[in-house]
Structures are given as structure tokens and as C-alpha cells.
Design a protein around this nucleic acid. Structure first.
Lengths: 182, 182
DNA sequence: CACATCGTTCAGATTTTTCTGAAAGTTCGG
DNA sequence: CCGAACTTTCAGAAAAATCTGAACGATGTG
């Protein structure tokens, strides 16, 4: 009875986080699995996750591997225990920072490179069409460079100045109430 | 001949932008179509876009409609002309601001609501499991609220302070060189 | 008014993503 | 060395996203 109560809440939260994560371009399950681990507050074996989220063992395995790749879940070996346990990273800041560092930066670079190729091609053209387009590709490049610099700064400092809220990300306890209607 | 040169560059750039856009959770074509319009520097009829990107008329139509919904492309009626023309929004800042305002804010709210429901459920539980989870759901909520506040501030000011690069987003000409290796 | 030119819509086809379940791999106790 | 308890891998199934093409609607033209 009591168990069913928090289980329902857990699914609700897991699904909500799943949506955010999907919005960031990952699969929903990644968010769900992380949330179950996070909410449990302790390490869990893969089977427990499969049970709670009604997933197949294979899917859980794949998902956990991917979560580890993003350093969002850690594998914990317990001496004497046959099975392995998994633990959620709890530092939101660290997680976001990691994702931005790896993913966003990669995309930004890849795009800049291609835009530069395009600019190079257009630079060769003598016709009006090429000239007109070159100028606009350069604007795109300028924008890309700004974005790239922002990302680098963000990642390097691990604490870019988003307005004045940066500090809150390290989540002091009990702040929920104050923020709720702030 | 000359035409083929810039056409190739155009496709290259369009594809690069398409990838960024896909990374943001939209379809690649949205980025491609916008880019073709942006680079052309003038208004274009739907057919031209279909030709340049080898898309079906239907797909172009759907895509243009969606781009208009995001205020990233405008429809332009030319007196005396039978067909309609389309024009790309060129203000990157305005576009991003719009997307964040509509999309991110929506997700943030939806997630917060669901997390609050979960917290409410957990608050009823008397068992240890519920209590332990409640605390963590509240941390998620605190984080969500911070994110929401950031988004609101960003959108309200239309110029949040991302490091010290905010100003550059309005792209003064010729800045490309300076930034390239800065 | 019949015709020609476009844009829109949407059912069905195609492609891509994601999941499942079974087989194979690993580790440990006996 | 065998069997039990787990995990990983991956081919094929299932589901989701995306695109095409044809039918239709609208608008202007002769």
C-alpha cells in the first residue's frame, strides 16, 4: 500500500524528467532511469530498475551504459555481491556542464567547419549570387563563433554567469519554499 | 557554372544549419529551408526552395508553415504576382528568444507541475520510502524553478547576460575576422 | 467559364529510432 | 567444472517520425 503510493509518484516524476531529457535530444528512458536512481537515494541493481519502469533487461542495460557514458550514473561494485549496483550522479551542475562540454561543443565545431568550407567556396565565385551569399555565411559564422565562445567560457568556468542565478544551482537545502513564489 | 558553385556552398551551409536545428529538437529541413531563404537574401517562392533542396512541394509547404509558426519565416504577398513569396527572419537574437519563450518555457512549466503533483503524493506517505523521495523531488523542483526563472529573465530582457558576449549577438559587420582566432 | 499556376492537405509509403527477447558472456558458489 | 544469477549484445519486431504524391482549393487569365 505505502509502496504503491511512492511508486506512483516516482513514475510521475520519472516521466516528467524524461520529457525534459527528450527535449534535450536524448531518449526519454535515459531521464526515467536516472530519476528512479536519483529518487531512490541509494544504489540499485539493474533488475530493480527494470521492474519499476517495466522495461526489458536489455533495454535497461543499454540505457545504463549510455548514462554512464554521460557520467550521469556510476557503476558500484559491492564486495561479496554477485550483481552490480548503479548510482545516480546528484550534482545537476556537473551533469549539465558535462553534456554541454561534450555535445554542444562538438556540434558547434562541426557546424563552424562546414560553414567555413561554404565561405571558402563562395569566395571563389565571381558572380553576384556568390558574393551576396558570402556575406550572409559570414554572419552565420560570426554567430557561431560567439556561441562557441560562450560554450567554452561556460564549460571552463563551470559556472557561467546566467543572470545572477548561478549560485543557486548548487542547491542549498530548503530553498524550495523561497523560490516557489519568488 | 557559376550558379553551380554557389549552389553547392548553399547546400553545405544549409545542411550545417540543419544539424544545429535538429540538435535543438526540430527537423533538419526546417534549418535547411530557412538557410536557403536566408542566404538568398531575397524573397523566394515555394517552388524555388523545392528545386534547390530537391524536396516535394508538399514537404516545402509543411515546412514553411512550421517556420512561420516560429516566426522565423514570413510570408510576403506581392501585388500583381500570382504566387506567394517567403522571406527569412534575419535577427538571430529574435529567433532564439522566441523559441526559448515558447518552447522551453512550456516544458519547464509542464515539468514543474508534474513534479509538484509527485511531491504532493509523497507528502501523504508515512513510510520511509516516501519521505526520502520527497526530499529529492523537492531538490528537482528547486532546480526547475531556477531554470524557469532564468528563462523568464532571459526572455523578458531579450538580452540575458551570457558572460559578456550578449552584445555581439546583434552582429556588427566585419567582426568575423576578429573573432576567428580570439 | 475553362485553363493554368500555385499552395495545402493528408493517406499511405518509407525511413529512422527504439525496444524486445533470446543467445552468449561473466562471475561466483559449490 | 557445473549451474545459478546477472549482464551484454544484437537481430528482428514494433513504433515513431518524416516524406511523397495525388487530389483538392484558391486565384488569376484569356
Amino acid at each position: 500500500m505505502g509502496v504503491e503510493l511512492w511508486h506512483e509518484a516516482e513514475l510521475l516524476a520519472a516521466d516528467a524528467v524524461g520529457d525534459v531529457i527528450e527535449h534535450w535530444g536524448f531518449r526519454k528512458v535515459l531521464g526515467r532511469v536516472w530519476t528512479v536512481l536519483y529518487l531512490s537515494g541509494e544504489t540499485l541493481p539493474a533488475v530493480d530498475i527494470a521492474d519499476r519502469l517495466s522495461m526489458s533487461a536489455g533495454s535497461v542495460s543499454t540505457t545504463l551504459t549510455e548514462l554512464q557514458r554521460w557520467a550521469v550514473v556510476k557503476r558500484v561494485w559491492k564486495p561479496g555481491e554477485r550483481r552490480e549496483y548503479f548510482e545516480a550522479e546528484t550534482d545537476f551542475w556537473k551533469m549539465i556542464s558535462k553534456v554541454i562540454a561534450e555535445r554542444e561543443r562538438f556540434v558547434a565545431r562541426s557546424v563552424r567547419d562546414r560553414l567555413e568550407s561554404a565561405a571558402e567556396l563562395l569566395g571563389r565565385g565571381r558572380d553576384a549570387g556568390s558574393k551576396a551569399r558570402l556575406e550572409r555565411v559570414q554572419r552565420l559564422l560570426a554567430f557561431t563563433n560567439v556561441a562557441e565562445k560562450m560554450i567554452d567560457t561556460f564549460v571552463a568556468s563551470r559556472r557561467a554567469d546566467f543572470g545572477s542565478f548561478g549560485d543557486l544551482l548548487s542547491l542549498p537545502r530548503g530553498i524550495t519554499q523561497r523560490l516557489r513564489r519568488a
